[in-house]
Computed example of a mutant assay.
Amino acid sequence: MKNKFFMLMLVLVIGVLAACGTKEDKANNASSNADKGTEEKQVLKVGTSSDYAPFEYVDVAKGEEIIGFDIDLIKLVGEKLGVEMQVQDIDFNSLVPALQAGKVDVVISGMSPNEEREKVVDFSNKYNQTEQVIVVKKDSGIKKEADLAGKKIGVQTASIQENLGNKIAKDVDATVEGRTRIPEIIQDMMSKRLDAGIVESGVAKGYLKTNDELEAFPVKEQPEDFKAIAVQKGSDLKDKINKALKELEDEGKIKELEEKWLKVQ
């Protein structure tokens, strides 16, 4: 009886251990598969400021999705990198701090590299060149920079246009006022809280096309201004993005996006 009892207990113990082993193997396999799934579906968080048509904006008549040249471009870059690009809307002057804090992995928002930004983040090669213009109301009497004397010039805070506006204001004795988003500049011009606004030509074209009360003229001394994609300082994403941009340029994809978004019909 003792031997039979001992053999019965041994069988039960072996059965329990085998079951535990099977569960552990399943758990390990599930974990392994989850890891593989994560690798296959890696997500990069992209910061942008959706007030910069035609580069990034929301067409409220069609929905809430952020669209534009930059959005299409970063998605193509994502395809080259084999990752999903998850776009987040952030005020322009908060984009670089968000990148520094690791809240986003990439910033694409019509952003131009400058000395201050390059101290804290890295930039890709340029993907678009542009010029700056001064937008005014047609009845403003402002036809050249000298006419801005004593006037209020609107610029987007923390932008290249802010630096340019400060230089022009010093030369002609004008005042510069910052706004968080480009539409605020246009709205305040229409309501005469601002006399002029400095924006890039591609953005200005959109407003001139839809508002026949506005006109624009080029800034006299054009700063070197090109757009680039920002990543965290020292990130290996910089080289990967540069490679993707080069491939997209060689394939004519960037030219196609320029035709789609930037060409005025």
Rank of each mutant, 00 (worst) to 15 (best):
A61Q: 14
N33P: 03
E65T: 13
S112V: 10
K170A: 15
I66F: 11
V104I: 10
L148P: 11
D195K: 02
F226R: 04
V60G: 05
I182P: 04
A61P: 05
E24N: 13
A174K: 10
V120P: 05
V264R: 09
E64T: 15
E259A: 08
G110Q: 12
V77R: 01
V155R: 12
Y127D: 00
G154K: 05
E39I: 13
D225Y: 11
E162G: 05
K220Q: 13
V58C: 12
N166W: 04
V43N: 07
D171N: 01
D139C: 01
E184H: 10
L262H: 09
R181N: 15
D212H: 05
A244C: 08
K137Q: 13
K23L: 11
R179H: 15
A61N: 14
L95W: 07
K2C: 03
S31Y: 12
W261G: 09
E200W: 05
I66K: 05
I134Q: 02
L76E: 11
E256G: 03
V121T: 00
D239I: 08
S191D: 00
M7C: 04
E145V: 03
D188A: 11
A244E: 09
V231N: 04
M7L: 13
D51G: 12
L10A: 13
K238G: 00
K240W: 04
S235L: 09
N33K: 13
N128Y: 07
A196H: 04
A30K: 12
G202E: 08
E56A: 14
K243V: 01
G63R: 09
P97K: 00
M111L: 12
S140H: 05
A169Q: 08
K246H: 01
P113F: 02
Q265V: 07
G252C: 02
L99R: 09
V121L: 01
K151C: 07
E145H: 05
M111W: 08
N166I: 06
I74R: 01
V96P: 00
S159C: 08
K255V: 11
R117T: 03
L44D: 05
G68M: 13
A101C: 05
G78R: 01
L95D: 03
N3E: 15
Q42S: 12
A149W: 02
K205D: 09
Q232T: 10
V58T: 15
T38E: 09
Q132H: 14
G197R: 01
K36M: 10
E79P: 04
N166P: 03
M9F: 13
E213L: 06
K151H: 11
V96W: 04
K2H: 03
A169C: 08
E213G: 02
K192C: 02
G82T: 10
V176F: 10
Q42C: 06
G102K: 15
Y57C: 04
D139Q: 08
R179S: 14
S112R: 05
K62M: 07
I186A: 06
A244Y: 09
E40M: 14
S201T: 03
P223M: 03
G150Q: 05
A174W: 05
D173L: 06
E221T: 14
Q265G: 11
G37P: 01
L95F: 04
I108G: 08
V219P: 12
K41N: 15
A34G: 04
K137I: 02
A18F: 15
D147P: 02
T48S: 15
M1P: 02
T210N: 00
E249F: 01
S191I: 08
L10N: 06
A149M: 08
G202D: 12
K26F: 11
G15T: 14
K152H: 06
V58R: 14
